[in-house]
């Protein structure tokens, strides 16, 4: 797979995985899409997510992180997902994709295992994440 804007998180080195994840998450003005698991449908969806990540709206960068196993970054992702405003009763194991907002790093645009991963759902997830922090753009611009 030849990805342009996707990073595959290693499964065999938990510390490296955490460092990589934190590095992307802490990047300013970046919308992260996290794809969890390794199934045929996920493998088919990854190029689509990668394609969409090449698009930028209002100067916000997009990036995709593929975490092939739910266990690798569970201790980081579980609390992150618990803060999502979409569904407070969300079960971590049922999530196969979500995005984080560019400024607050809030988890949103969640796609569950029983839903389809396609251009439409992935684009909605990216947009939801970017839309989450729209109100903060002026504040951030002023503080820079």
């Amino acid at each position: 797979m030849n990805f342009k804007r996707t990073t595959i998180i290693p499964l065999d080195d938990a510390e490296l995985a955490k460092q990589l994840f934190d590095a992307y998450l802490n990047k300013e003005f970046m919308i992260l899409m996290i794809i969890l698991g390794d199934t045929d449908s996920i493998r088919k969806a990854l190029p689509k997510a990668d394609n969409l990540a090449t698009k930028s709206y209002y100067g916000m960068e997009r990036w995709v992180l593929w975490i092939r196993n739910h266990d690798v970054l569970e201790s980081t992702l579980r609390p992150l997902l618990e803060t999502n405003e979409q569904d407070e009763t969300l079960v971590y194991e049922d999530v196969k994709c979500f995005s984080t907002s560019p400024i607050l790093d809030a988890a949103t645009g969640v796609i569950l295992k029983n839903a389809e991963l396609n251009y439409l759902s992935l684009q909605r997830s990216f947009f939801k994440a970017q839309s989450h922090d729209t109100g903060l753009i002026n504040d951030v611009n002023n503080s820079l």
């Binding site: 709206y57 209002y58 439409l120 759902s121 947009f127 753009i137």
Partner: peptide, 21 residues
């Protein structure tokens, strides 16, 4: 790039994608 314009864009895109979906 003002907040209102961006928010309007995201709201309308959400409506468009939801209708498509």
């Amino acid at each position: 790039e003002n907040v209102e314009s961006q928010q309007q864009f995201f709201d309308l895109m959400e409506l468009f994608l939801m209708t498509i979906g």
